[in-house]
């Protein structure tokens, strides 16, 4: 398949901004429309644009399969740990351990921020992994 200059150039200029926008959606999901799932999918779409235009081999040197699967698994385990932190604080599994703390000291929303970032990393890594794994050529 012939690669056009437009695709090559646009993908390289656009992908960093898509990744950045995905991270923005993750970190502001508690204040504005967005959140973990949406931000993760935007990050994955940036990765998908990269490997559709530049090839899986080039993209895999930037986002190696091993790293993606590690991020996926680690984010899930951290999410479980965050849920258990709620249990340890007496708020129940996945409860908010900051509920008992003074709001002025630690914002109550920090737990949701942690969840959002972890979910976003996990969704982004997982969907990028699946798409790259299915698209890779020659094994």
């Amino acid at each position: 398949m012939k690669k056009t200059t437009i695709l090559d150039l646009v993908s390289r200029k656009l992908a960093p901004f898509m990744l950045l926008f995905g991270l923005y959606l993750l970190s502001y999901g508690h204040m504005s429309p967005g959140g973990g799932f949406q931000g993760g999918v935007v990050i994955a779409s940036g990765v998908i644009l990269l490997f559709v235009a530049q090839g899986v081999g080039t993209t895999a040197s930037l986002f190696p399969f091993r790293t993606l699967s590690l991020v996926e698994a680690a984010a899930f385990l951290l999410l479980l740990a965050a849920g258990l932190a709620g249990l340890a604080a007496g708020a129940g599994f996945l409860g908010n351990p900051m509920a008992g703390v003074d709001v002025r000291a630690v914002p109550r929303v920090s737990m949701i921020l942690v969840y959002n970032v972890l979910i976003g990393l996990k969704v982004g890594a997982g969907i990028s992994f699946v798409c790259m794994y299915l698209f890779r050529e020659g094994r």
């Binding site: 508690h30 959140g35 999410l79």
Partner: peptide, 24 residues
């Protein structure tokens, strides 16, 4: 209660976090 201005986030990560865990 959850501290999140976005009510959707407040529900799916606050009140229904277990459901979100299932999706994960």
């Amino acid at each position: 209660e959850t501290g999140a201005l976005n009510l959707v986030t407040a529900i799916y990560l606050g009140y229904r976090a277990f459901d979100t865990m299932g999706e994960i």
